[in-house]
Write a protein that binds this DNA or RNA. Structure first.
Lengths: 202, 202
DNA sequence: ATAGTTTTACTTACCGTTTAGTAAGGACAG
DNA sequence: CTGTCCTTACTAAACGGTAAGTAAAACTAT
């Protein structure tokens, strides 16, 4: 078990809380409690709440961009796009707090998102732009806005993680109908991938 | 110009603020200021902040469900699905505060969403379930979870409205690449519609 | 019609709580 | 004895919500 520094401990616990409650409703007192320290100890390690948030969020965006870059280097445009979507889906599974945080940033108009994160996002988008461009050159894909494709990939996957309670509530209201409530996330990723690729093809 | 009651005025102004800032960051003092009244006047009309929020949000969900139901009664499964998506897209354009509010609810795990709204959402989903089922019967669509399809429709459209500032920031980081930054929303809706329908077809 | 009464639709002034952030000091390692 | 890492005790401000009062409209009884 790798010994984790107190600073890292604060980041980990606050990540969980930021994800569950959002930035505003996460109070540093409760973060401190989770870490079994007092609130001013957080201020020893981080200048203020916003800085802590940045420290929580930035590495996730960086890790995501890195994984996506690594996994979309080789293969045909279709294979690379499939990898792009697959990698994103797997990332959300292995980083369970990320979906809610990212979803809130999207909902927010991203006023609070740190510049570094935006830089990391733009790394991913560049990759996607390149994949789509290659696909168009190869005569496989129709031309399409990379941002739209990005949204088509990112937002359904993220939302599938954040809306589990909502889907359950909706299912209760629609009891008579047959609603396939809760497929596995992995299946969702593959289903989505298949549909997006098919939708993009000429 | 239809004279609008003060209660309605409060709803309208707070809708704008809830949409821009979110529930937590919208303070009733500023709502009151916008309406040129004082904070306790709001409490005369609404029991508390949560009740006001409900009054802001509920009619939008109801209007959405109604429009979707009306526009997806007739035609083939493909036509009805196209209508479904189109109506949703148009609704977001004509109700500009709705996207951010809905996006936050999705990001939130919908802990705060009023039951009436969920009921209205389930009306839409029922419609979608029916469309997809018909399409499968007709041998046109592959079977797919209605929730996934709903997510594929709803979240990219909503996000396209809320992420305008984010897209601009990203575009700055990726200057070298050619990124089609800001197509019209109407085009986005049609592009998305086309891709989803194609993706669902056998 | 009008005097009296009640209701509507607010206002001013205030309370209590929450929470970000700070000041000052203490324990302990090297 | 000095820097690191934390604690206790606190401040200031923001914000949801309330108490109490008031001007004007609406209703009622004579």
């Amino acid at each position: 078990m790798a010994k984790v520094s107190k600073k890292e401990l604060i980041i980990q616990h606050s990540r969980k809380l930021f994800s569950e409650l959002g930035y505003e409703l996460t109070c540093l007192e409760s973060v401190a409690k989770e870490c079994s320290i007092t609130k001013p100890a957080i201020y020893y390690h981080f200048k203020d709440k916003a800085t802590l948030y940045k420290a929580v969020v930035s590495p996730e965006f960086t890790a995501l961009a890195k994984r996506i870059e690594e996994s979309t280097q080789r293969g045909s445009a279709v294979e690379r796009l499939r990898s792009y979507i697959h990698t994103f889906g797997e990332f959300l599974i292995s980083n369970p707090d990320f979906s809610a945080i990212f979803a809130r940033e999207i909902a927010n108009g991203s006023r609070t998102i740190p510049d570094e994160c935006i830089e990391q996002l733009s790394r991913s988008i560049k990759q996607l732009v390149n994949i789509l461009y290659t696909g168009v050159q190869e005569g496989i894909f129709k031309e399409e806005s990379a941002f739209l494709v990005q949204m088509m990939i990112v937002t359904p996957l993220i939302s599938y993680h954040t809306t589990k309670p909502l889907r359950e509530k909706i299912a209760k209201f629609a009891q008579n109908e047959t609603i396939t409530l809760d497929p596995q996330f992995r299946n969702i990723t593959e289903s989505l991938s298949e549909k997006i690729i098919k939708g993009l093809q000429c």
